[in-house]
Amino acid sequence: MTLAEVVAALGLVPLVELGLERRVRWGFCSDLLSDVLAHAQEGDLWITHQRHLNVVAVAKLKGVAAVVCVRGSRPSREVLRTAQEEGVPILSAQEDAFELAGRLYRLLGGEP
């Protein structure tokens, strides 16, 4: 499934609208940067509460499909600008992490 299809199906709001043609492999839910570095995989949709600048670096390093900020939160303008420059899509969801992860899990058919 492409990022565009996931965005449409889950009603996500693109804050940095890029890479909509990317394939979303699976999801990854974590607020620990080292956990993401160790275990997220390329193409994962990274669901997190973190929204500082290092998130962009970690997202790029791992090649995640996009970062999703939950509960309607959004990173600062500076972070969004850096994400745009670095080519990291950032999305925002109204739901909390649990609900969003559940909806994504179902959307992707329960397996990567």
Partner: peptide
């Protein structure tokens, strides 16, 4: 609170 300090940094480097 910023998501550091998981105690995985040096293990990740080694791995």
């Amino acid at each position: 609170e910023l998501g550091f300090g998981a105690g995985m940094g040096i293990p990740n480097m080694e791995k």
